[in-house]
Amino acid sequence: MDALTQALVDILRPLGITEPVLQFMLVNAILGISIYLTLYTGMFSLANAGFMAIGAYAGVAATQFLGMPLWLGLIIGMAVAGIISLPIGLPVLRLKDIYLAIATIGFGEVVIILLLNFDEIISSIATALQGERVRIRLLEGARGIKGIPKSTETWMLFAFLALLMFLLWRLHKSRLGRAMAAIREDERAAANMGINVVYVKNVVFVMSAVVAASAGVFSAHLTRIISPGAYGFDKAVDILSFAVLGGTSTWVGPIVGGLVMGALPEVLRFLNDLRGVFIGLILLGVILFLPGGLINPAGVRLLLRRARRALRRRADAAERSSHAAP
């Protein structure tokens, strides 16, 4: 597996993609799946960054404070995010598009504020219980939790991503997958067809949260430090851009979007000051000129059809001219 990774990195190296870059690209791909699930169901949720934070902190708490191995931290991080997502999803998912987006942005901000003040909150509870001033330092607020071992390996990310892709493939062929698509197309019609809309939406929301949390656990064990600021509104928009760039018509889209958005800042390093402008231009260009994103079978089919038609026309013209010649 390591040799395989090494070979892949050797191929990508001329582009500026080293192994750590590849690792963050894979984390992004997982995040892409997380936002794909909700978008595919027609839910414009921006809660992914918040759940990523929850996953990262819960996972790190397990590995750092309780000395658990990474795989157990991963499971705990995902479980905690899943449990928290349920009571959030139930009320919030009644909201639609912009309102849902704003409510979930609010959720993300509240998560950050709570993480920033977690130590203070438990300190004041402890102070109240003990009757004397207690200062507990656990999550360290903005200082961040430092010295996290870099235990995420590239092969783990590949394996986990492959597992997710397999599950997605299965999902699309399942009843739940069809219900998700139906809700996106027309929620009322879906309900009339007997789909339990509330149930499906909540299940998808929990799945999305759990996947985002896994990305949080993996990335926390890559960056060696986690602090709440890294999971704010900017991160939420970043994750959204994976889906926008890749397109959401198939599950391949957000994965590719995540990979590309992870690679772009590194590949474009040679542009120096112009790097940010270029990334902005690429993103806006895709939104404007490739409405379905980079990966869009319908768009490709359309393009192919146009190309075929153009070719045929040229062939016809050529034939005609060859007829006319003699």
Partner: peptide, 30 residues
Amino acid sequence: NEQAIAAMTKLVEEDGVVAVLGPTLSSEAF
């Protein structure tokens, strides 16, 4: 943090620099 890691890897492993100044933030340094 991700970009700081990528930049440090590039400088140290690809460019083979003698030494590095930075990064700006403490969290990036960690």
